[in-house]
């Protein structure tokens, strides 16, 4: 009996790990790919190592883009739905709402949350779950323009597919910079 319960606990641990892997892999394969502009800084996570904190142009949404209009400031942790559509090379916000809505044909709907430092009066600060990009040790201080390719599955939960430094894959570009 004890062995069965022990195996059950290990199976639950493994189920979470594999479930997360499956969700992320499915999103990477099936999600719609969008490209975004960023500005990085480079802290370190105790368990996951060096990473870039990515701040996107779409992280601050002007209140004027909300439909229906916002009557008051949103508290932190509130879910917000954002529609982005291509403008030149990158995707930019065309509409935001507190309720899920049907986006225009060329737009992609992303789920976001208001961030804790949401204190601006003219815009709402959002987090998409795309704010951390983990990199190889000591390669978290790049020089150049960073762009992100993200995937957005039908659930709206975006994840990072690839990061580019001056148009080249990040790891490859950083190898040259660190040599």
């Amino acid at each position: 009996m004890r062995l069965k319960l022990f195996v059950l606990v290990l199976a639950l641990q493994l189920a979470w790990l594999l479930g997360t892997v499956a969700t992320q892999e499915t999103a990477l394969v099936r999600g719609q790919v969008i490209r975004l502009e960023t500005q990085p800084v480079d802290p370190r996570d105790l368990l996951r190592g060096d990473y870039l904190v990515l701040n996107y142009k779409i992280s601050n949404v002007p209140k004027s883009l909300f439909t229906p209009p916002l009557a008051e400031n949103l508290p932190s942790g509130e879910t917000v739905w954002v529609a982005v559509s291509p403008h030149g090379e990158f995707y930019e916000i065309v509409r935001a709402s507190r309720e899920r809505f049907e986006p225009a044909a060329d737009a992609v709907l992303i789920k976001a949350q208001t961030s804790w430092n949401n204190r601006r009066s003219d815009a709402v600060s959002l987090q998409y779950g795309l704010e951390q990009y983990f990199v190889r040790e000591r390669t978290g201080n790049p020089r150049g323009k960073i762009t992100v390719e993200a995937v957005v599955p039908s659930s709206g939960r975006a994840s990072i597919k690839q990061v580019f430094l001056d148009g080249r894959p990040y790891a490859e570009a950083m190898k040259e910079q660190t040599q």
């Binding site: 997360t20 892997v21 992320q24 990473y51 987090q127 779950g129 795309l130 983990f134 994840s159």
Partner: peptide, 8 residues
């Protein structure tokens, strides 16, 4: 898993 998929 968090690192591989850059989960925030």
């Amino acid at each position: 898993v968090g690192q591989i998929y850059h989960l925030s």
